[in-house]
């Protein structure tokens, strides 16, 4: 993992790097088994008691379940200092958790994207804030 000192997520409680790996901050219902992301957006199976929801980190690696290549700049409030188009967006599957999460694909040859390939959670530097911190979002890259 890169040096993440002086790095801040643009919106908190979505991506974590405190364990030494970059991982998505999900939640799990221990009654119905549903994983959801983001944590604040609760999802339960109908009839679930909704008891025992806990915060969990998704594994750092998953498989590419779908992708697209975006050819025009995303409008505000999306913001990056550098031009990133064309950029990939992937749906990465975490098999055991039975969830797919969408995110920008970075540091990866877009021509070489293939369904089923192993992807790793990472961050994408978007811009520097007034405190000179690197502001990031979560992203995915081809696993090494």
């Amino acid at each position: 993992m890169e040096n993440m000192a002086n790095t801040v997520a643009r919106i908190p409680n979505l991506v974590d790097w405190s364990t030494g790996e970059i991982r998505l901050m999900s939640a799990k219902c221990n009654s119905c088994g549903t994983y959801f992301f983001p944590r604040e957006h609760y999802q339960h199976r109908p009839g679930c008691s909704r008891e025992g929801v806990e915060d969990v980190l998704l594994p750092s690696k998953g498989k590419l379940a779908s992708y697209t290549i975006q050819h025009y700049p995303c409008p505000p409030p999306f913001k990056t200092e550098k031009k990133i188009t064309p950029y990939g967006i992937g749906l990465v599957e975490f098999e055991e958790e039975k969830i797919q999460v969408a995110g920008i694909i970075t540091d990866t040859d877009l021509e070489a994207l293939e369904l089923g390939m192993e992807m790793e959670t990472t961050t994408l530097a978007m811009y520097s804030n007034e405190e000179k911190q690197q502001v990031v979002t979560w992203a995915f890259k081809a696993a090494k």
């Binding site: 409008p75 999306f78 969408a102 995110g103």
Partner: peptide, 20 residues
């Protein structure tokens, strides 16, 4: 707000992911 600020995902992205 999250999908716009963090995801970079205008509506057609969703359709493209399903189409793929």
């Amino acid at each position: 707000v999250i999908r716009w600020k963090m995801g970079g995902m205008p509506n057609p992205i969703y359709w493209a992911l399903e189409c793929t």
